[in-house]
C-alpha cells in the first residue's frame, strides 16, 4: 500500500501546461471544478469570519467591529465552566472512539462466522438501522426508556436493583452517552470491517485448518492480521474527530443537572454563541476547537502513513 508514487509518477517530475493539455487528465479536472468552486465559496470565503473571534462583534458594525486581540480567549479560559468542557469532551470522545471500534470489530468477526446468510444479513440490517435515526427522534425515546420509572429501570428493578437516573446523575451520564452512541453506530462501523473480511483469501483458512487451527485460532492468526491495516487506519482517522463528542446527542439529552460531566465544548459554544448571541465568544471557542482538530488530523494522517502505510497520495 505504501506507494512510491511521489518518486516514480511520470507526470510528477515536471509540470508543464503542454503535458497537462496533452494528457487526458484535464477532462477529469474539469469534472472536479464545480466541486472545488462550491468548496471555495462555502468553506474558504467564510473563513474570513474568523476575525470575529478577535473582535468585540456587534451585527450593526459587522466585521469592522473594534479589535480586542486575545481578550475573548482570555475570557473563555477564565471561565471555570469552559475548562471543564474540554475534559468532558475528551473523556466522552475517547471512550466513544475506542469502544465503538472494539464493538464494531467483534460484531463483524462474529457476524463473519455465521454461516446462514439470511440470518447474517438480517442481523446486520437490524444492527445498522439505528444509524439512520436522528438523535432528535432517538432522544425522545431514550428519555422515556431511561427515566427512573422507565422501561430499563423497571427491568433492572424486577431483579431488585435500585433505579438509576441515567440522564440525571452526573456520574452515570457520560456512560449513558457513550453506550447509546455505540449502540447507534456500531452497525455502521461493522460494515467496513465486513468488507475487509471478504477480501481475506479463503485459502489461508483452509491452510490453517489443515495445520489444525480451530475457529478461534483461525480468527487470531488469519482474520485479525488480515484486517489489521483497516483497524489501524480507521482508528487513526477517527482521531481527527476527537473534539466532536457528539453535539446532537448531548444537546438533546443533557440538562443543568449533568453539566458537571456532560457539558462538552460544542454544547457550551452553542449556549454561549447562539442562544446568547455572543458571536465573538462562540467563534473563539470554535476556532480553538478547529486548531486542535487540525493538529489532530495532521498527526493522525502522519501516523496513518507511518504505522498503516496509508496516505492519500
Amino acid at each position: 500500500m505504501k506507494s512510491k508514487s511521489n518518486k516514480t509518477a511520470p507526470a510528477g517530475a515536471k509540470f508543464t501546461w503542454k503535458k497537462f493539455r496533452d494528457s487526458r487528465e484535464w477532462q477529469l479536472h474539469l469534472i472536479l471544478l464545480p466541486a472545488v468552486v462550491v468548496v471555495f465559496i462555502y468553506s474558504y470565503i467564510p473563513l474570513y469570519g474568523i476575525v470575529i473571534a478577535f473582535q468585540k462583534f456587534a451585527p450593526a458594525t459587522g466585521f469592522s467591529s473594534p479589535w480586542t486581540g486575545l481578550a475573548n480567549f482570555e475570557f473563555l479560559f477564565r471561565q471555570p465552566n469552559f475548562v471543564r468542557t474540554i475534559g468532558n469532551t475528551l473523556y466522552i470522545a475517547v471512550f466513544k472512539l475506542v469502544l465503538t471500534q472494539i464493538v464494531s470489530i467483534v460484531f463483524a468477526l462474529m457476524l463473519n462466522e455465521v454461516r446462514c446468510s439470511a440470518l447474517k444479513r438480517s442481523v446486520q440490517t437490524v444492527a445498522y438501522i439505528p444509524n439512520f435515526l436522528s438523535w432528535v427522534v432517538l432522544s425522545g425515546m431514550l428519555i422515556d426508556i431511561l427515566a427512573t420509572d422507565g422501561l430499563l429501570n423497571q427491568i433492572t428493578g424486577f431483579f431488585g436493583a435500585d433505579p438509576i437516573s441515567f440522564l440525571g446523575n452526573p456520574k452515570v451520564f457520560p456512560w449513558t452517552m457513550i453506550i447509546s452512541d455505540i449502540w447507534k453506530n456500531f452497525g455502521y462501523g461493522a460494515i467496513i470491517y465486513l468488507a475487509a473480511l471478504t477480501s481475506v483469501d479463503p485459502g489461508l483458512y483452509e491452510a490453517a485448518a489443515l495445520d489444525g487451527a480451530n475457529r478461534f485460532k483461525q480468527i487470531w492468526h488469519v482474520t485479525l492480521p488480515a484486517i489489521a491495516p483497516t483497524i489501524i487506519l480507521m482508528s487513526l482517522l477517527s482521531l481527527g474527530s476527537l473534539l466532536n463528542a457528539g453535539f446532537e446527542q448531548i444537546y438533546n439529552l443533557y440538562s443543568p443537572a449533568v453539566y458537571q460531566t456532560g457539558d462538552i465544548i460544542d454544547t457550551y459554544m452553542y449556549r454561549l454563541g447562539m442562544i446568547e448571541a455572543q458571536y465573538s465568544f462562540g467563534t473563539a471557542v470554535g476556532l480553538f476547537k478547529s486548531v486542535i482538530s487540525c493538529i489532530l488530523i495532521s498527526v493522525s494522517y502522519w501516523a496513518a502513513d507511518k504505522f498503516a502505510g496509508y496516505r492519500i497520495l
Partner: peptide, 20 residues
C-alpha cells in the same frame, strides 16, 4: 481536498457560514 476537508470542519466549528 484535504484542505477542503479541514476547512469544512473549521467553518462549521466557528459558525461563520453566515457570510454567504
Amino acid at each position: 481536498l484535504t484542505g477542503a476537508l479541514l476547512l469544512s470542519v473549521t467553518a462549521c466549528g466557528s459558525g461563520t457560514d453566515n457570510a454567504p
